[in-house]
Nucleic acid binder design. Structure first.
Lengths: 338, 338
DNA sequence: ATTACTATTGGAACCGGTTCCATTTTATGT
DNA sequence: ACATAAAATGGAACCGGTTCCAATAGTAAT
């Protein structure tokens, strides 16, 4: 609990000098530097975050806002962000994601206001829970934000997103390339932008290959295990047979596989299944899951760094381009086409 | 950005009065109360966390330390803790769990010191990564800690753990009750206390029923999908046939099922598999997973509340007893015993 | 009306840093 | 050696709250 004044007294210098040593800014002679460092060591001195924040008007804390902070992928990502911030002694806090803006129209603004005012220096908005207009308003009065997995043209330099449209296209094309023409799908959550994009990209790939997918074989999911399971059962009940199923994420793909298997059918012999995300478990399912890998960590790191640059006038490196990767395993089978 | 002095000026009162209104402590006449509240509203005043922390010497932040902050179960739990803390406007931060004390002998102490000194008012130590002795030392100079999923006799009132021994016993007994006598297992991570306990409890149940499990049918896992998969393959390669497999957690159970299925065997007809944790996905696997549910959320909430009580002199309700729940699904089959 | 006591109120001092300026010390040039 | 510029240093003032005490207003009792 020693203060800068204790250090100054022990070292026989003024408090300004100690402060200079701490920040490394002003000029300090090597002799005094040594004295001060010794004193700090002897007193086990650590500067008070609170006092620093009070004068610097920086909380050295950034917040994350959004409901997408669940899911295995996202947790892995949070870890990476933590690591990135630790170096700068910045804290990461969550800004409750339960407040869904559609359910509580004003809740999001309120929780933002709280954060913005005194809680943290910047916010990473994860996902597209908030309407673009609202985000733009927020950005206007509070420019220290960064978007992760969301895209708004007007503030493109603060957006770190992935081309889900293209990835969806790759998935569709892959199933076509494997000889499938009767294809079903369980979409992601279509109320989110990325869920929509990957679905559109997927449909476009089919269309470009003169394959069309009947309405009955499109099941609207929401990324959960539950909808994956129910979706597969529902699709199987339709009259239209299909040989391949594209799912909006790995979770629904996994439970869809379970449903198919429980119905006595075999993956991939009867039905090929393709996922999206490449979760850890994807390689340990039965059969191992063909999926597409999103470089989520790199996106998150860049979003974090951009925010650090904004908040603390740093110039950390950032990337905006995130290539996808098709991961072929065994859940998609090549159809023999006569 | 308005301060308490701005509010005082606008309301025509002294700063002390505003402070009294803020804290709700001192006596304030209803007239002034109204004036001050109006002024605060007009200025959109929010008190500065930094200034408050500086004088109160509380950071209004608590930390989580431990490698166990991964895994679906744990993430769900973190959410609950967040919610609990939000009410008190306390922030939750992570104290890097990568620093494994065995890998970096001093790293844990160092990162603790940092946190303790100025970072946060209390710490929840999650899991048993740190040796008990070290925890006791820490507790000695820094009493604001709480243990989650770890037990140390001397500070039992700060420990919130689950009786994994008993749960392991229940699992063993369940397999026995279902008529199995040739049982294999893929353990959890035996270097952790809870992994060990559930294994011992499991063995004890078998032993109490005059069933013994040969060395070759015990595969030492580590909770990962990978070890579950490899473990199942390795066990199948042994010469000893078995009809049931107990896994240290759901993740390894799931990948074990995948391995068994990939080898052309059927769960539960050829081999019954039992998990441990009851992850979300457990009911959507094929077959749905028989497992045991740990009331982790409730444990975490109590650990959090206990810490709040310690740090901020509150008296929130706490519970210490956490019953388990056997969740029977379809991955364990009743054997016909002649 | 006066006294005695209680309820309100204002604001100085403080928490532990940073900033900035006046002052002192040291270095450089002639 | 002396003038002068440059480097190093000390500490007051400040950030925005809380705490505490002296001062003032209000109330009841005599």
């Amino acid at each position: 609990m020693s203060t800068i004044r204790d250090v100054a007294k022990l070292a026989g210098v003024g408090i300004g000098t100690v402060s200079r040593v701490l920040s490394g800014n002003g000029a300090v002679s090597s002799k005094t530097l040594l004295k001060v460092n010794q004193a700090m060591g002897a007193l086990n001195f650590t500067p008070s975050r609170a006092a620093r924040s009070l004068v610097s008007k920086k909380m050295n804390t950034i917040g994350i806002w959004g409901t997408e902070t669940s899911g295995e992928i996202n947790r892995r990502t949070l870890r990476e962000m933590e690591a990135e911030l630790k170096e700068f002694e910045i804290h990461l806090i969550f800004a409750d994601g339960e407040l869904n803006s559609s359910k509580y129209p004003n809740a999001s603004r309120q929780s933002f206001d709280k954060l913005i005012n005194k809680g943290c220096d910047g916010i990473i908005i994860w996902g597209s829970d908030l309407p673009a207009l609202e985000i733009l308003q927020i950005e206007n009065e509070f420019p220290n934000i960064t978007l992760l997995n969301n895209k708004i043209e007007l503030i493109d330099d603060k957006c770190f997103y992935f081309d889900h449209y293209q990835a969806g296209y790759v998935c569709g094309q892959h199933l076509i390339d494997k000889g499938h023409s009767n294809i079903a799908c369980i979409t992601g959550w279509l109320e989110t932008d990325d869920g929509n994009q990957r679905h559109q990209g997927f449909l476009c790939a089919l269309n470009d290959n003169n394959t069309n997918i009947p309405e009955e074989l499109i099941f609207e999911g929401d990324y959960t295990y539950r909808k994956g399971y129910e979706g597969a059962l529902s699709l199987l009940k339709q009259d239209k047979p299909f040989t391949a199923l594209f799912c909006g994420n790995d979770q629904s793909a996994m439970s869809a596989i379970a449903a198919i298997t429980n119905k006595g059918l075999e993956v991939p012999n009867d039905i090929s299944v393709m996922g999206y995300d490449d979760m850890n478990i994807a390689r340990y399912t039965s059969p191992p899951l063909t999926t597409v890998r999103i470089p989520f960590n790199r996106m998150a790191i860049s979003a974090t760094r951009r925010l650090l640059n904004l908040c603390y006038n740093l110039e950390l490196n950032i990337e905006y381009d995130f290539p996808i990767q098709l991961i072929e395993r065994l859940s998609v089978k090549k159809l023999y086409v006569p």
